[in-house]
């Protein structure tokens, strides 16, 4: 599933480790999501959307 997490993180001047700490996962998990190698759970997807104050579908594109 394609996502723009890396762009949003860069725009917020956050490191992967910083974002990981905010949503209680490891830095490796954020890296895997950004590279499209791991699709997060609904819970984590909502946590990321909540952090960036947007909807889940604004970050993740299920059609890709």
């Amino acid at each position: 599933m394609r996502n723009d997490l890396a762009d949003r993180r860069d725009a917020s001047s956050l490191s992967q480790a910083d974002l990981a700490a905010e949503v209680d996962v490891s830095r490796q998990t954020i890296n895997a999501i950004e590279r499209g190698r791991y699709d997060p759970s609904l819970e984590l997807a909502f946590a990321l959307a909540d952090y960036f104050d947007c909807a889940v579908e604004d970050i993740f594109d299920p059609d890709e």
Binding site: V25, S26, T29, Y38, P40, E43, L44
Partner: peptide
């Protein structure tokens, strides 16, 4: 301490 996150568990 948290030994694993959701990706580790998967």
């Amino acid at each position: 301490a948290q030994l694993a996150d959701e990706r580790d568990r998967r």
